[in-house]
Amino acid sequence: MADSALKLQLTEAMKDAMRAKDKARLGTVRLALAEVKRIEVDERIEPDDARVLSILEKMIKQRRESIRQYESAGRQDLADIEQSEIEVLQTFMPQPLSDSEIDAIVNQALADTGASSVQDMGKVMAAVKPQMAGRADMGAVGQLIKSKLGQA
């Protein structure tokens, strides 16, 4: 069974963090590897890079939500911990797309799908998601598509 390159990168990062005695980074990387392992066991699959990427995206999204909750509760100390975990997880993500790149991909998808109203949003999202996976906030992309379809 061949491991994905991203999973191997996580494993190497864990070893490096152990050697450097970087407890914060080590803990975050171990959480990510544990989540990958959980998927392997639960679904009896060997996750590829795309699946590992989606796992990391989900972990980042969870931490962003936790930050909002902690900040609204006045617990900045906990929000800072979550933010540092996001920073560690983002080191394994591909280079984020710029706003102009996102706009170009969305415009191309709108043209390709012939979308004309908000009812066509699912088709457009399906077209852009593979190109943007792990490289853009899909919630923000959804809002951009919705605003463009609203104008159409």
Rank of each mutant, 00 (worst) to 15 (best):
Q119H: 12
G122N: 10
S117Y: 03
T28R: 07
I145P: 05
L89M: 14
A126K: 14
E35V: 07
V52P: 02
E12T: 11
A104N: 09
R135P: 06
Y70V: 01
E65Y: 04
K123H: 10
V118A: 12
D137E: 15
L26C: 01
A50K: 13
V124R: 05
M125D: 05
Q95Y: 01
Q62G: 13
L8G: 10
A111W: 00
G122K: 13
L78Q: 14
A111K: 05
A34K: 11
A20W: 03
D48C: 08
A115V: 06
D137N: 15
G74T: 08
V41I: 15
K7E: 12
G122S: 13
R19S: 11
I102P: 02
K148R: 15
D77F: 07
I102D: 02
K15Y: 08
G150N: 12
T113W: 03
E82H: 11
A2I: 10
V88H: 05
L10H: 04
K61L: 11
D22E: 06
A109F: 02
R51A: 04
Y70C: 06
K148S: 04
V118N: 06
G27R: 14
D137G: 06
L8E: 12
S116A: 11
D3H: 04
R38I: 01
A109T: 06
R68Q: 14
A104K: 11
A20E: 15
L149Q: 10
A111G: 00
E82W: 04
L26W: 07
A133Q: 15
E57F: 02
Q95L: 08
Q119A: 15
A126C: 03
L144Q: 13
D16T: 09
M93F: 10
R135C: 07
S66V: 09
G139T: 13
I102M: 13
V124F: 06
E101Y: 06
A133L: 15
R44F: 05
A32D: 05
A79W: 11
A79D: 10
A115W: 03
L144I: 10
K23N: 07
P94H: 03
K61A: 14
A104W: 01
K123Y: 07
S98F: 07
L31V: 03
I81G: 02
D77K: 08
D112H: 02
A20P: 02
V29R: 08
F92G: 08
G150D: 11
R51V: 11
A34T: 12
K37Y: 13
T28F: 01
Q69W: 02
G27S: 14
D99A: 12
R38P: 01
A79C: 09
M93Q: 10
